[in-house]
């Protein structure tokens, strides 16, 4: 049996995951990276993306997070996300609507020319990320 370590995935709104895992994949600042047991201590900035958890016993779980920080300690990993949702809790319809809204705002010929482009882009990235996570859960 593979060596496991303790993973906590939490947001200001609550704890999303807390348990023993074999592996976790995190959305790093410069791309995804995986963490296995006995990883060297690390502090990493996380972007908007997907967290893939392989629990010690069984099925993979997927989470969408909107950036945060990851700390790898001595066989413990803490993911402190600004916000996040478990794949099974994501409302695909709402995510789709949010993506549409953001796309419309970025469309250029929208009614408000002075919209916050950066904010709309972030909203789009978050919505697409959630849709991606949903698709992985259902596949």
């Amino acid at each position: 049996m593979a060596v496991s370590f303790h993973l906590q995935l939490m947001t200001p709104e609550g704890v999303l995951f807390d348990g023993q895992v074999q592996a976790v994949i995190l959305p790093g600042h410069d791309g995804y990276f995986g963490v296995l047991a006995n990883h060297a201590p690390l502090v990493a900035e996380l972007g908007i993306g997907e967290v893939v958890v392989t629990p010690a016993d069984g099925q993979r779980r997927y989470f969408a997070i909107t950036g945060g920080i990851g700390e790898v300690g001595e066989n413990t990993v803490a993911v402190l996300a600004d916000g996040g949702e478990a794949g099974e809790d994501i409302d695909a319809g709402r995510a789709k609507a949010a993506a549409e809204r953001a796309r419309h705002r970025l469309g250029g010929e929208g009614p408000e020319p002075d919209i916050d482009v950066q904010r709309a882009q972030l909203a789009l990235a978050r919505a697409l990320n959630r849709l991606h996570v949903v698709s992985e859960v259902s596949s």
Partner: peptide, 20 residues
């Protein structure tokens, strides 16, 4: 409810900051 939901996040964030 909100305080309790966020407690472990804030505690852990403080620890990480302290470590760094």
């Amino acid at each position: 409810q909100i305080v309790q939901a966020g407690r472990s996040y804030y505690e852990r964030l403080r620890q990480v900051t302290e470590h760094v």
